[in-house]
Amino acid sequence: MENAVVINGLTKEYKDFKLGELNTAIPRGFATALIGANGAGKTTLIDILCGVTGRTSGETVYFGDMTDIDSDALRNRIGYCSAANYFPLDWKLTTIADSMEIGFDNFDRAKFGLLCKRFKVGEKTGKKSKSLVKMSDGNRMRTYLAAVLARDTDLLVLDEPGSSLDPLARDMLCDMFREYLSERDGERTILFSTHNIADMEFATDYAIFMAEGRIVEQGFVEDLKQKYILVHGDAEYAEKARPFMLSQSGGRSGFEGIALAENAEMLSAFDTAIETPTLQQLSIGILRKAEEDE
């Protein structure tokens, strides 16, 4: 399997936070979700990968042989969008198109117009075009996404793209992820961060879980669903099952948690129900375990 990005020994040190050392890879041709709680280091990692923030140490290799994020050739291949305020708030759609056209060689003005229509954020040349400051948070994010998706890129890096979108728009975003990946079969890659994976699960192929600046788990979603199990049980067995569980929660009526699939046989002895976890359930289990370990 080819990788779009390979991260070797990446670190970033702030006064009160340290990212890494990170060693991982983003598989080419898939949508990878960076999952973690607030402050896990997702945005810092994304900012480093896109040249917004410098690294303290380590190396990143893009598309097999590109390492200089400051080179225009590499910048043109990466479509990046921050979680908020991607553009100055007094900008209108026309201003955005003008600026993107100068800033990137592969920005398609006509496509931007079509995407704005599809996202229902207005006509870019219309007199009624509103400035970003007058838009809702959701419409601002739709506009940012339209601008980024209007570029012909190989890697899309989006920081919390779904957090300010309504359920319908999130669903449309998932469809657009699929379209983006299928347009050049296997050549394009998406990396996006989220702290609420539930609405983006459909669009996620590969997941990287982060906590406290470290990667605590990663893998293809289908593999992770085989590696872990979701366990339900009666409250009376909660304590007996605990040693075999990765993370567990519950009350008087019963318990629920994530465990390694290899413990399924042991756990079934405690009259438990075992299911395949959703990515959301996996996230909670894995991140809770990481929090407990800290």
Binding site: D47, C50, G51, V52, T53, D70, D72, R75, N76, I78, Y80, S82, N85, Y86, F87, P88, L89, W91, I102, G103, F104, D105
Partner: peptide, 19 residues
């Protein structure tokens, strides 16, 4: 500045710091 609206966008455009 990076933390201001547009700050991150400007850091990713063609030419980077030169621009």
């Amino acid at each position: 500045e990076k933390h201001m609206p547009g700050g991150k966008f400007f850091r990713t455009v063609k030419g980077g710091f030169d621009t």
